[in-house]
Amino acid sequence: MTLIDKYNVVADSFTTAGKISSKIKDILKQLGVPSDKLRKISVACYEAEINMIIHSDGGDISLFIDDENGMVYLHFDDVGPGIPDIEQAMVPGWSTASEKAREFGFGAGMGLVNIKRVSDNFDITSSSEGTHLKVGFQL
């Protein structure tokens, strides 16, 4: 498994929201990832990036490629309050988006559900120190 790149996400950086996802999308295009997969990875990445901006105190997004098994992995590691009840967070429509986030039109609460829906591999752990989300996609 090769780490392609690692990007820093700044909390509350709404004005540049989605920029990292765009970069990752460009890299995957360059890599020749088939377009149906590219869509799914992009959507998941965007949702998770927004989640980090809204809910965490910042963190990193890392892009890995496992060329032997034909997998793309995205790791989202943040510091911050964490998700107290993951099961509840997986219910469609549930959201704790802050007032500011709502103002920007984010926080419809589809985040985690959407990410799980489009990914082939989904693993999340969360504590009061932060959240670690690993998603994998079979190419």
Binding site: T2, I4, L31, G32, L139
Partner: peptide, 21 residues
């Protein structure tokens, strides 16, 4: 529909990508 046939293996694509990078 888009013809997306890319016969290169993932490994080859990766090697190329890393070289360019």
């Amino acid at each position: 529909p888009m013809d997306e046939q890319d016969l290169r293996k993932m490994k080859e694509k990766m090697d190329w990508f890393l070289r360019v990078k």
